[in-house]
Amino acid sequence: MKLFKRHNNVLPGFGLSIGFTIFYLSVIVLIPLSSLVFRTAGLTWGEFISTVTAPRVMASYKVTFGAAIIAALINSIFGVLVAWVLVRYRFPGRRIVDALVDLPFALPTAVAGITLATIYSPNGWVGRYLEPHGIKAAFTPFGIVLAMTFIGLPFVVRTVQPVIEEIEVELEEAAVCLGANRRQTLQRIIFPMLLPSILTGFALSFARGVGEYGSIIFIAGNMPMVSEITPLLIITKLEQFDYQGATAIACVMLLTSFLMLLVINLLQKWSRRYAE
């Protein structure tokens, strides 16, 4: 049925654009990533399983994926708020704030980690006020969430922002004319329109958090079983010249992120259909 629809499409360039897309995707992403799988294939199935389910590794999955989900949730809530405020409201310094949002991209992750550690460590600007209340931010799993929130924030803001900008004011006006109050408009009109992009932002922020290495090692404390992230274990394997062990864990990470992204993309498709 879908194929039939494509034949009815009058727009040109499908073959060319999809062809180039798949070609570039293969050259840059798929073929290089396949080298991971091939390298891992040197392990027997039993070796593979025991490598990727070792207690240390399992603990690191929990820390990494758990922290990434929390960070992505924080970012989804505050990211949408920030995007909304930036597009819809006028206040002094708005443009500066707008530019600031990209900071986590521009700042090298190592600098971000060092800087966050500077701020949130027990002798840091913020950390020294948290410490007396028994809150340890840096060098705990909480530090990992902090770093992941920092690096993931722009993903949500920058995905949601253009969509808010594109919302036609007429829609909202029509809703008002039809007797909807503001809350109803937001809930029934705006939120469903934003939902796909929020889900995208969530997915990207989550995915970015799972893979992050540079900033986290400076603030996590890296204690085995407690605050050791999966990418660090990959590095650990590499340091022992254990390429196969490293690529085995990398494959698991890759597969997990791929599945989560796929689910979220399907969810997004569903939400769009629901919105229509």
Binding site: L3, L11, I18, L36, G211, P231, I234, S257
Partner: peptide, 29 residues
């Protein structure tokens, strides 16, 4: 602009580099 089978898979594959740990992105090359 077009519908075709496997679209979600394609989108997901495009997203993939985000979720690949930077350590891995260098390693594969």
């Amino acid at each position: 602009k077009f519908s075709f089978p496997g679209k979600n898979l394609l989108i997901t594959l495009i997203d993939l580099p985000f979720s690949v740990s930077p350590v891995i992105s260098g390693l594969i090359y």
